[in-house]
Structures are given as C-alpha cells and as structure tokens.
Simulated assay, not measured.
Amino acid sequence: FQRMAPDLDYAVNRYRREAERHYEVLDAQLGGRSFIVGDNYTIADMAAWGWIERARFVLPGSDDPLAAYQNIKGWFDHIDARPATQRARKV
C-alpha cells in the first residue's frame, strides 16, 4: 500500500503498523540469542534473512530502518556475513 496505493491512508497505516509489529516480535525473540530458534542456524534464519533484507522497502523513510530493532540488526549482520549468504546474494 505504501508504494502502490499511498492515498489509502487507512491501509498504509494498518499494514505499516503490522510490519512494525512483526519486527518487534522478531526483535524480542532475538534478545540474548544468536539465532531465531535454538542455538543453531536453521531454516527459520534463512527465511527471515530474506524478509529482513527488504527492510528498506518495507519500512521506507529512514537511512537505517533497523535502527529501532537492534537485536534484528545484529542478527542480520551476523547472518549476512556468512559465506553461504553471500553466495545467495549472487543468485
């Protein structure tokens, strides 16, 4: 809605807030841990990385859309530095 129907204020606000709520849940989950589930890198981390990679698209208007989500930011940087992640970027 933010990009395709920005004149629909209700929809823009509703779905922007829902995206922020999801980021808040993930940020809380990552508090004090390296991975989303357990002590190991799993498919949950792989799947979430792709969505968090799009934070600038989902949360436009900031140079650092993850600034409010420090646990996500640290986790993302850790996952993003993995050699397999770098190979995935090239696909």
Rank of each mutant, 00 (worst) to 15 (best):
V12M: 10
G50L: 08
F35E: 03
D77G: 07
I52C: 03
T42D: 14
E24Y: 00
E53L: 09
A55W: 06
E24V: 00
A67K: 09
G61L: 08
G74R: 08
A84E: 06
P83T: 11
D80F: 13
R17Y: 00
N13T: 01
A68Q: 10
Y10G: 07
W51E: 09
R82N: 07
F1H: 07
D39P: 04
A84R: 06
G74W: 10
A67H: 06
W49E: 11
P60K: 15
W75Q: 05
R21F: 00
R54V: 07
R16V: 00
S34F: 09
H22E: 06
I52K: 02
G61N: 07
D39T: 10
R33N: 04
N13L: 01
F35G: 02
L30E: 04
D7Y: 15
L66E: 08
G32M: 13
T42Y: 15
N13F: 00
R89Y: 15
I52D: 01
H78L: 11
Q2M: 14
R16F: 00
S34N: 12
G38T: 13
A44S: 14
G50C: 11
E53F: 06
D80L: 13
L66Y: 05
D80W: 11
L66H: 05
I79F: 05
P65N: 09
W51Q: 04
R89I: 14
E20H: 05
A5P: 01
R82P: 00
D63G: 12
R3C: 04
I36Y: 02
Y23E: 01
R16T: 00
R89G: 08
L26Y: 01
D45K: 06
M4K: 11
N40L: 09
V91T: 12
F57M: 12
S34P: 05
A5M: 05
V37A: 10
S34W: 11
E20L: 08
Y23G: 00
Y23W: 05
A11R: 07
F1D: 03
W51Y: 10
R33W: 12
R21K: 07
R54P: 00
R56I: 08
V12N: 08
D39Y: 08
A28L: 03
D45C: 06
Q70I: 03
A67M: 07
D9T: 02
A55E: 03
R87D: 05
A48D: 04
